[in-house]
Amino acid sequence: MKKMCVVLDDREVQDNPFQPDMWRIVRKYPLTGDVNFFQARPVDVDEALKFNFVPGQFIMMSVMGEGEAPFCVSSSPSRPGLLEFCIRKMGTMTESLFALKENQTLGIRGPYGNGFPIEKMEGKDIMIVGGGMGVAPLRSLLLYILDNRDKFGNVTYLHGARTPGDMLFREEFLQLKERDDLRCLLTVDKDDTGMWKDKIGVVTTLFKDLGPIDAKNTVAAVCGPPIMYKFVMDYVVKLGIPKHQILMTLERRMKCGVGKCGHCAIEYLYTCIDGPVFSWWDVIHMKELIGRGANDKTIA
C-alpha cells in the first residue's frame, strides 16, 4: 500500500491539494438508463500528459456551484491524455453533472487513494470479477493489464449484470471475448429481449465454467454492489486464492479525498488514503470495512 504513495510523490507537488483543475468534457453519452460515460481532457493541454495515476485510484470531480464528489477513473493510465468515467446519476451532484454538455468544463483534482498494487500483481494470474458500478475501476485495471499483457499470467474476466441493457461497456466486453489472450465470461441475471446470446444467471454461475486455476499464484480483484461481495467472496475464497491476494474497492462518503474531512474514516484508516482498494484480509480483520455490523460473530 505504502508503495503506491511513491507514485503520488513523483507528481509535481501542488500547493493547494483542494484546488480543482479545469477539464473539458470531450465526449458524453449514456451507457445505460442512468449511467453516463464521460471523457475529459485538461483545458490546459500541456497538463494532459502529466496526469499520472494507477488503476483503482479516484479523483474528486467538481461541478461549479454544485459541489464535489469522488469518482474512479475508468480509463487506463497506459492510454494517457484523456480520462474516462462511468457515472451513475444518484443525487444532486451527479444530476448537475449529467446536465453538462460536451465542451463544457468541470473541475478535477487528484488522483487519490492507493489504487491496485499493480507491481505486486505483475507475473501473477489475474482474475477480475465485476458487477454493477464496480466495473468503473475494474475497466481501468483490465485495460491496463491488456496494454501490458506480457507482464501478467492468465487473465480471466467475469462480469455480471442484471439485464443486457444494464451491462456497462457491453459492446466493448463482447469484443474482448474474441481475444485469445484473455478469458472473458459474461452473464446477465435475466434477459427479456431475447437478444442475449451468452450465459444467463447470477455472476457466481460463471465460476462453474472456470476450470482449474493456479490459486496461489492468482490475484483477484472484485468490485460490485455489497450484495455481490457477500456471494462472490465465498466462491473466490473456496478457490484457494490467498486472502491478501483478493482485492476489492470500498465506497465511503468522501468530502476531501486527502485525509482531512474525516468522513471516510474507519477505525484508524482513511478510505481515501489507505483505500479505496483493500484486501479481503483487511476486510475480515477490520470490523467496519464492509459494515458487518455489531452482531456479526463469524470468524472468517
Binding site: G65, G67, E68, G262, H263
Partner: peptide
C-alpha cells in the same frame, strides 16, 4: 475534532461564487 463538510454557493444571477468549508460532526 476536525471533521468538516463543504458547499458551493453562488451569487444571485450568475455562476460565480464560493466554495465554503464548515464544521461537521460524525
Amino acid at each position: 475534532c476536525n471533521c468538516y463538510n463543504q458547499v458551493d454557493e453562488v451569487e444571485l444571477g450568475s455562476l460565480e461564487g464560493t466554495r465554503d468549508r464548515f464544521w461537521d460532526s460524525c
